[in-house]
């Protein structure tokens, strides 16, 4: 089984989000980067499949040289090799087009991605990728079993889940549940050493047109001060929620 795992490199979840003075770009000053949390879940699932059924795992990122630590970390966790498409991504469609190009030549059975990236929250790459490749696609995947070339997967729906079946080749957009928190992988020393010897191929992007463009950012308005209510004044709280906030 050949598996491709899409890795997006995002600001740490505790990062303060600031923009450059003209609000045109994200201010990366002092920001630590991590593997997108959703991608950690899918990478751990890919490792699990590799150990159980045998598989090769390639990780891929569309990004500039700064993203390489995330690809190295993925290899330290156990991916066999890595590909970086050398371009600053313009939008999810662009990323999907670049990854599709690689998948067309290398043909994978299973492509994993995260449900969304926590920076731009596009929720776009896996669905567009599957469509461009004409692969089957399961979104918001919270459970997966593979038998031969058939996947049985659980997808999260509003108020429950549903079980789906699909054949390879298949794109899975995953999240927590696909792997439990306790089963996430942390690289060990040996993995880190081995990762240094693994191949990280750097490829140039294909030409594509722009579908969307960023026109700048704004921060949400500051919250007005919190109204404190004494613990023995529950009637006061109910009154505020009813008459002032009008939510009950």
């Amino acid at each position: 089984m050949k598996i491709l795992v899409c890795i997006s490199h995002v600001p740490d979840t505790t990062s303060k989000i600031n923009f450059t003075a003209d609000n045109a770009a994200f201010d990366t000053n002092g920001v630590q980067y991590i593997i997108n949390p959703y991608d950690e879940f899918v990478l751990a699932k890919a490792m699990h499949l590799k150990e159980g059924l045998g598989a090769s795992i390639t990780v891929i990122n569309v990004g500039t040289a700064e993203t390489e630590p995330s690809l190295r970390k993925a290899m330290a966790i156990g991916a066999d090799d890595a590909i970086r498409i050398n371009a600053a991504p313009k939008d999810g469609f662009f990323v999907a087009q670049q990854i599709a190009e690689i998948a067309r030549t290398n043909t994978y059975d299973l492509i994993f991605a995260g449900r969304e990236s926590i920076d731009y929250n596009g929720g776009m790459v896996p669905g567009v990728l599957a469509t461009l490749l004409d692969y089957n696609f399961i979104n918001a995947c919270v459970g997966l079993e593979i038998e031969n070339t058939t996947a049985t997967a659980q997808r999260e729906i509003d108020g429950g889940s549903e079980t789906l079946q699909a054949n390879f080749p298949l794109v899975i957009a995953g999240q927590k549940g696909l792997t439990e928190e306790k089963d996430l992988r942390i690289p060990n020393m040996r993995g880190i050493m081995m990762a240094r010897k693994k191949t990280l191929a750097i490829l140039e992007p294909i030409e594509t047109g722009d579908k969307t463009g960023s026109k700048g950012f704004e921060k949400p308005q500051e919250n007005a001060a919190c109204k404190m209510v004494a613990a023995d004044n529950i009637d006061g709280l109910i009154d505020l929620l009813h008459n002032e906030a009008k939510v009950i």
Partner: peptide, 14 residues
């Protein structure tokens, strides 16, 4: 964007 920490203005040009 940024998990509710900001808003992005996005131009769609298709």
């Amino acid at each position: 964007a940024f998990s509710n920490k900001a808003f992005q203005h996005t131009e769609i040009n298709t």
